[in-house]
Design a protein around this nucleic acid. Sequence first.
DNA 1: CGACTCAATGACGTCAGAGGTCATGGTGGA
DNA 2: TCCACCATGACCTCTGACGTCATTGAGTCG
Lengths: 289, 289
Amino acid sequence: MTSEVMVEGTGAGRILQGMKVEQPSRVGVLLREWRQRRRLSQLDLANLADTSARHLSYVETGRAQPSRAMVLRLSEALDIPLRERNTLLLAADYAPAYRESGLDEEYMSSIRAAIDTMLTAHEPYPAVLVDRLWNVLAGNRAMAVLMDGIPPHLLEPRPNVFRLALHPDGLASRLANLGEVRTLFLQRLLRQVNATGDEALRSLYDEVRRYPAPMGGETEGPGEGEHGPSPIQVPLRIRTPYGELSMFSTMATFGAPADVTLSELAIELFYPLDEFSTKALHALGEWSS
Amino acid sequence: MTSEVMVEGTGAGRILQGMKVEQPSRVGVLLREWRQRRRLSQLDLANLADTSARHLSYVETGRAQPSRAMVLRLSEALDIPLRERNTLLLAADYAPAYRESGLDEEYMSSIRAAIDTMLTAHEPYPAVLVDRLWNVLAGNRAMAVLMDGIPPHLLEPRPNVFRLALHPDGLASRLANLGEVRTLFLQRLLRQVNATGDEALRSLYDEVRRYPAPMGGETEGPGEGEHGPSPIQVPLRIRTPYGELSMFSTMATFGAPADVTLSELAIELFYPLDEFSTKALHALGEWSS
DNA sequence: CGACTCAATGACGTCAGAGGTCATGGTGGA
DNA sequence: TCCACCATGACCTCTGACGTCATTGAGTCG
């Protein structure tokens, strides 16, 4: 997995012939748009946001880079929707500050139909709806293949993808390639923890990490294993009474993929990796319907 | 769609009883981990990154917040994989700086099989592989329903989701709810443009925006239409010779959803919204195979 | 135990840049 | 013509990133 340099900052204040050339700067333009939309003068907004009109002017024209706090204050004063505030922050080269929420609320119900459609349309392949913490909120019938025989204490408050997959009482014992899976899963979870700093996620990580690893040279924690370019995709090889099923999974979200907003829920879609698994899943699907 | 405040910054330097309490700060911890992994002393790294050991110590312990440039320089000196550098930036409350790339390269081919599996497994529903700029790189057979009768000039260098959907010679004329679709599509594209500042995306936006809108009160550009909480999900209602198909789409990506890295490619999955569409797509699928 | 490495940190300094205040001049609408 | 609005210059403050130098204290190793 290679990567490449992106836009290198916002591009404001580029040096040219020893002279700073002020470019409008994305935040500046965006803030101005919002202000005009609200029909406020720079002075009005400045008062509202408790800053000076002078500085605001400079920010809008790109002669000054607003601090993160300033961006947030202005957003607040302009009463900009949270989702757009994230856009502003990104435009100013700061990390987004808000995440979507409200799965439990109307949001979820408004797309409930879509979710159900997806889940059932994906049959006979397994699919689950998960929240930010990887809790399983719903699943289709094909999930039975995976959930079969999972002891209740793993479903307790609510099943969790990581616990299900890596807990010794869960799928772990049935995974033919537990080592691989465990490594990749933990790695991903850790990255997510580090990127978001979410405490709940961290404690999930701490818990899951303690689950026993399969024998064989364990690359302990994040420690040694040289984060190297990890294989984005790792198969899930599950031993079942019908034979070994090979699958991989992807995450489907609503909205654009580059939507840097940390999305609150996603659907994990499993796909078969080989002919046998495909047929087996189809057969199981027929049988159970 | 509601949102909620996130972690409110990194949490470093919280005020307590009028005294600053320095918390380890995520970046600090992460940087230290990387440095130790590289078996460098603070002094060594400081020299490599052309900074002072003193400051580095402060950064690691969270007594100082590194600037974006400093984070990047340290990452460089530590030879941290780009993907992880993004994690560091986020941990320091800065916007990520790198994006994944290399679809054309080995990356694509390494997951080529997975992509093919997904595309065909999704039949008889349409699905396409798109890149960052929404160019269509592959599609399954069910896409024929959508691509049918699209003039070659829209497929020219390479078909593009937005051009296909909104160009008058494209799907636009067949969309029963072009107005809605157009509004949502443009809105999303605009957000993406603003968040990423990507020039290529911006010019795509500028182009697509000029396409004729259907009659009826057009909420011009980003101007008036009060960005309000837009409906995350909008159906695509397409008139076909077989009747009107209703579908919605979601984006599937590889890797975690909260992976703030701007992903380079994604798969757009279409799902039927009603009984009729479901049956029609299945029937068409049967027929064409 | 002395020599050495390494990390933390105090004292002190520089400097860029965010952000403020006051004033001016230029625009365009009423 | 008056005024609201904006850009901008002159000038100021202050925070905080970051530098240098020196000290201390905790290992570690011969």
